[in-house]
Amino acid sequence: MADPQLLSNVRALVGRQYGRVYAWDEVNAPMIRQWCEVMGVDNPLYTDPAFALGTEHEGLIAPPAMLQVWTMEGLHANNYPSGSTDENPYEVLKEMEAYGYASTVAVNSELSFTRPLRLGEKLYYTTRLDSVGDEKTTALGTGFFVTLVMSHFVEKAGGDEPVGELLFRVFKFRPANVQAPAKVEAAAVNAKRPLPGISDDTRFFWEGCEKGQLLIQRCTACQTLRHPPAPVCIECHSFDWDTVEASGRATLYSFVVMHYPEVPPFDYPNPIGLIELAEGVRLIAGLVGIEREQLQIGQRLQVEFQTFDDQLTLPLFRLAEA
Rank of each mutant, 00 (worst) to 15 (best):
Ala2Phe: 03
Pro4Arg: 12
Leu6Glu: 05
Ser8Phe: 14
Val10Ala: 00
Ala12Glu: 09
Val14Tyr: 09
Gln17Met: 02
Met39Gln: 12
Asp42Cys: 06
Asn43Ser: 09
Ala50Gln: 13
Leu53Glu: 15
Glu56Pro: 05
His57Thr: 13
His57Pro: 00
Gly59Phe: 02
Ala65Trp: 02
Met66Leu: 07
Thr71His: 01
Met72Gln: 14
Asn78Cys: 08
Tyr80Phe: 15
Gly83Leu: 05
Asp86Ala: 06
Asn88Ile: 08
Val92Met: 03
Leu93Tyr: 00
Glu97Ala: 10
Ala106Val: 15
Glu110Met: 06
Leu119Ala: 02
Leu123Ser: 03
Thr127Gln: 03
Asp130Tyr: 13
Glu135Cys: 10
Lys136Met: 10
Thr137Trp: 01
Thr142Ser: 14
Gly143Ser: 10
Thr147Ile: 11
Leu148Gln: 15
Met150Gln: 14
Gly158Lys: 08
Gly158Met: 04
Gly159Ala: 04
Glu161Gln: 15
Glu161Asn: 03
Leu167Pro: 05
Asn177Glu: 15
Pro181Leu: 14
Ala182Val: 10
Lys183Val: 15
Val184Asn: 03
Glu185Leu: 13
Trp206Ile: 11
Lys211Gly: 03
Ile216Thr: 11
Leu225Gln: 04
Cys233Tyr: 08
Glu235Met: 09
Thr243Gln: 09
Ala246Trp: 02
Arg249Phe: 05
Leu252Thr: 02
Tyr253Leu: 12
Val256Thr: 13
His259Arg: 12
Tyr260Val: 13
Asp267Tyr: 05
Tyr268Arg: 05
Leu274Thr: 06
Ile275Lys: 06
Gly280Gln: 04
Val281Ser: 01
Arg282Asp: 00
Gly286His: 14
Gly286Phe: 10
Val288Ile: 14
Leu295Met: 04
Gln296Val: 12
Gln299Ala: 11
Asp309Lys: 08
Pro315Trp: 08
Leu316Trp: 07
Leu316Val: 15
Glu321Cys: 01
